[in-house]
């Protein structure tokens, strides 16, 4: 197995699937500005996916383009976190999912900027600037909703309770990470989880929200074991390529 390719697929699938989820809000946002914000963030994420998959195709060396990788894989070959394939739910669920993810991606990209692999570092530097805006946006919503009305507080707390079990998967290091760390391609991820936790704690505290005490962890996405939701996403995402194989425009 090519560890760098595998790592890029994980990184790219997180962006792709969350980008797709956010795009589902297009035309359905609670207010026009939010509709535009979510689709802007979606665009950033899908743009990042393009850069990541383009590079993954080169690393793999089998001539696959970014579109081939995005559209022509089976479900078990997708390696995104289970968190990002969770359904949009209400606006609170979408924003909580976004916040938990943004708070992870910012310190991750800050580390990846120092990757010895030049292209990975360049992608991280580019994406980091965008992620800072995303995190700010989602953090503000968490605080506004948590410290808002009784109804908004309850809904965003429910969202946190529902999604919390999917966050542990972000910090698992397996043989893919270990081999890249050993080869010096990936920089040390030391302190990543602590930094994430500090952001989460600070925002949740201002939002008057409570982290659930149930510490059950749900893993699977990184190994291609997905919830039923990913199948529905792929059905839509891959529709054109499945119905008209090889089509271009």
């Amino acid at each position: 197995m090519n560890s760098l390719f595998e790592y890029l697929i994980r990184l790219g699938d997180d962006s792709l699937i969350l980008g797709h989820r956010l795009s589902e809000w297009c035309g359905h946002g609670p207010v026009l500005e939010e509709d535009i914000a979510m689709t802007n963030i979606s665009l950033d994420l899908i743009g990042q996916t393009t850069s990541i998959f383009e590079y993954a195709g080169k690393v793999e060396g089998k001539g696959r383009s970014e579109d081939d990788i995005a559209f022509l894989r089976y479900q078990k070959d997708y390696k995104n976190l289970l968190l990002v394939e969770r359904p949009n739910g209400d606006f609170g669920v979408t924003m909580m999912r976004q916040f938990l993810f943004d708070a992870f991606r910012k310190p991750l990209f800050e580390r990846l900027v120092n990757a010895s692999d030049a292209q990975l570092s360049a992608i991280a530097a580019k994406s980091l600037k965008e992620t800072i805006y995303h995190l700010r946006h989602s953090s503000e919503w968490i605080i506004r909703l948590g410290d808002g009305t009784e109804e908004s507080h309850q809904r965003i707390q429910d969202a946190l309770d529902e999604l919390w079990k999917y966050t542990a998967e972000m910090f698992v290091e397996d043989e893919v990470d270990e081999s890249l760390l050993a080869d010096g391609i990936l920089p040390s991820m030391k302190g990543l989880k602590e930094e994430w936790m500090a952001t989460v704690n600070s925002v949740l505290e201002q939002a008057t929200l409570t982290i659930p005490t149930n510490n059950w962890e749900q893993h699977g996405g990184r190994n291609g074991k997905h919830s039923e939701h990913l199948g529905f996403i792929l059905t839509e995402l891959q529709y054109m390529q499945r119905a008209y194989p090889g089509m271009e425009w």
């Binding site: 500005e33 535009i36 914000a37 963030i41």
Partner: peptide
């Protein structure tokens, strides 16, 4: 500031 995200990725509203 109305929104950090405007009519294109590079603009705020």
């Amino acid at each position: 500031l109305v929104s950090q995200f405007g009519s294109t990725a590079c603009k705020a509203h």
